[in-house]
Design a protein around this nucleic acid. Structure first.
Lengths: 160, 160
DNA sequence: AACCCACTTGCAAGTGAGTTGCAATAACTT
DNA sequence: AAGTTATTGCAACTCACTTGCAAGTGGGTT
């Protein structure tokens, strides 16, 4: 009804936001999961947040829509496994979830920096170990992930 | 008694092992805690290990001596608060404890490798980033911890 | 358009790490 | 040696998360 109220709509596709409803449904389907209301609401919620969300926060927010916490948690895990979310641990024994670009995790495997204050995750594409350190770590095992923890510049400010 | 059995000892102090019983008692007392058997056993245990110990592992090991898990946990936390231990979270929702030099916390902080298969943790004392990588990471924030994840050599073997 | 069935959900009960209250006990002080 | 106060053991508890299962539903199939 209100779709064409400006008279100039039919041509230009709406600039699809990454958290657009349809594209989000597509994302879910593209990884082989069903786009159920609960799943959709969960992914949209995480996508809309600029910083990682805990299970409790998500469950609380979605409880208003009548979604059970077990469902929220299962979906958070399913979406993580499918590569649409990333799960991280900030050192306080609570998992936090954050939307990824949407590609499946393993290929773009780069080091991350995670702020132990605000939980924000930064990708560090060019980060490398010294040759000697690589050797040392390879002596221990096959490294699949490098994670740095600390205080990000936003949280590190004296004012913060 | 046996102090002078070499005839040339009075001058040089005995090379006190870091996990020596008496020096451990002293350490505990020096931070204002009572050197109880449970506390002593706990600190000795952690000191003797070369890699961080989980609460569960410590509790299990000390249960043999009749020490309750709540006591173990309280002591682990007390000793951590006092700066004799460091508590870290390697991403698997389990606290791990390791002995510090004895000074309060932050100085002897080294990277860890954690096996995502068996959970074993290895300390990587000499691990370093390349100069450029250090710069990159410092542009993002102040790094307080470096963590590598992967498959340790035990788990990586085809046979395992 | 209706059908079907594997995938999902809600509920409730379970798990496991870690914590706490409290009375009994033991370390250090004087 | 006695007193004071930290510490312990036990058991019950919290909190974050998980699981079992019967009922419900998405979405491909007919």
């Amino acid at each position: 009804m209100s779709l064409n109220h400006h008279g100039a709509t039919a041509l230009s596709p709406p600039a699809r936001l990454p958290d657009d409803l349809e594209s989000t449904q597509d994302k879910i389907r593209s990884v082989g999961l069903r786009a159920t209301p609960a799943r959709l609401a969960t992914l949209l919620l995480v996508q809309q947040r600029s910083s990682p969300l805990t299970h409790a926060e998500a469950a609380q927010a979605l409880a208003a829509k009548g979604i059970d916490k077990a469902t929220v948690f299962r979906n958070l895990n399913d979406l993580t496994e499918a590569g649409l979310l990333r799960r991280s641990e900030l050192g306080d024994h609570v998992w936090r979830f954050e939307a990824t670009g949407g590609h499946t995790g393993s290929e773009d495997n780069h080091p991350h920096f995670i702020c132990i204050d605000c939980g924000s995750v930064t990708c560090l594409n060019d980060l490398q170990l010294t040759a000697g350190s690589k050797r040392e770590s390879e002596g221990v095992g096959q490294v699949t992930e490098i994670l740095l923890r600390g205080h990000c510049n936003n949280c590190h400010e004296p004012s913060c």
